[in-house]
């Protein structure tokens, strides 16, 4: 079967006064039906912009300048606002990072859910309300009938995120983009929400693009992983091989800086330097200035994707752990 989502050569640039910011600069990936793809990267790596590009939520001065986004075989790039509106919520939904901000504070939960139903399905108010109530029940909100009449501020952060998830699930979209949906929650709630998302998506066959900077979350949740750096995917593959034997020095550095990797009491390892400005990327590899294994050709030429067995790929001239992959 064709993949749910196929992104190829996507370039989303922001034309600011300070210059062109190449937030997403040639990103290609695909998501199979029912699959969970972890899109990992630090702040400013372009992972959220990639998600918003799929939703058609890039506002000026930003623009998709190149590439293709195919959702269930349908090309999204170049759709007008009404075309995107029909897709959003029905064929692809999105859950945001901060549940305190995503629900409108002055509208009741039922208003915000019913309008989401009737945006795509011409059903009666009553039917839409019943569907909303069932959706709330499904994400584990107690006494959903009463909670429909509540305002967002009467919910806790975790409960609000459940409401957002319920809204995303209303039309049973084949794909949901999750933009760090557990980052703003505390750890116990985080694991509950993760478990529930996993269960719900397994039931409905929904595919997820899980955007996060938390490798721990990805390890437990995702089937495949794509690591982004400076607007490009630098490494991709199934989760376990990538996390066990990272090929890219950046992936290796990220893993090395996890607290679990260090000696108790010893300072955490970190990747030196900081992300380059996306308005002025260097000529060669974007990671060269921070890489421990940098060589002369890294500075001269940006690397292309090198494929590896097991559907892995890495954007590096001198990948690490080659022995581990060959074996």
């Amino acid at each position: 079967m064709a993949p749910v989502l196929e992104v190829s050569g996507l370039k989303t640039h922001f034309f600011t006064r300070a210059g062109t910011v190449k937030s997403v600069d040639g990103v290609s990936f695909h998501v199979e039906r029912g699959e969970v793809l972890g899109l990992v990267g630090e702040s400013g790596s372009g992972k959220s912009v990639t998600g918003f590009s799929v939703m058609g939520l890039i506002d000026p001065p930003g623009r998709i300048v190149e590439g293709s986004i195919k959702l269930n075989g349908k090309e999204l790039v170049g759709l007008d606002e009404e075309g995107f509106r029909e897709v959003r919520g029905r064929e692809v939904a999105m859950i945001f990072q901060d549940p305190m901000m995503t629900l409108n504070p002055v509208l009741r939960v039922d208003t915000q859910m019913i309008e989401a139903v009737t945006a795509h399905d011409k059903v009666s108010h009553k039917a839409a309300r019943e569907r909303s109530r069932d959706a709330l029940a499904k994400v584990g909100i107690p006494s959903p009938e009463e909670r429909l009449n509540a305002y967002p501020h009467q919910f806790s952060g975790g409960m609000r995120q459940r409401v957002a998830i319920a809204i995303a699930l209303l039309h049973r979209p084949p794909l949901i983009i999750c933009d760090e949906p557990t980052t703003a929650l505390d750890v116990t709630i985080q694991s509950q929400i993760l478990a529930e998302m996993q269960g719900l998506c397994a039931d409905t066959g929904t595919a997820l693009v899980w955007i996060t900077h938390d490798l721990g979350v990805v390890a437990g949740l995702a089937d495949r992983i794509a690591v982004m750096y400076a607007g490009r995917i630098v490494e991709t593959g199934a989760v376990d091989p990538v996390l066990d034997t990272p090929l890219h020095p950046y992936t290796s550095g990220l893993l090395g800086s996890l607290p679990a990797e260090g000696e108790p009491g010893a300072p955490l390892r970190q990747i030196r330097g900081s992300t380059p400005s996306l308005a002025r990327l260097p000529q060669g590899c974007a990671f060269a200035a921070r890489c421990d294994y940098v060589q002369a050709d890294c500075l001269a030429l940006a690397p292309d994707v090198t494929p590896f067995p097991g559907a892995r790929g890495v954007r590096c001239h001198h990948p690490l752990n080659l022995a581990g992959v060959a074996a």
């Binding site: 939703m55 939520l57 606002e81 509106r85 029909e86 897709v87 959003r88 919520g89 029905r90 939904a93 999105m94 945001f96 901060d98 901000m101 995503t102 629900l103 409108n104 504070p105 002055v106 509208l107 915000q112 309008e115 989401a116 945006a119 795509h120 957002a164 809204i167």
Partner: peptide
Amino acid sequence: LMDYVKFARAKGLSQSRIIGVHILKN
């Protein structure tokens, strides 16, 4: 610029509903 406006768009709401209800009431 608020997230709730972006979320409302992500739900597939029309522009007029977003402006007339979500933004106006705030």
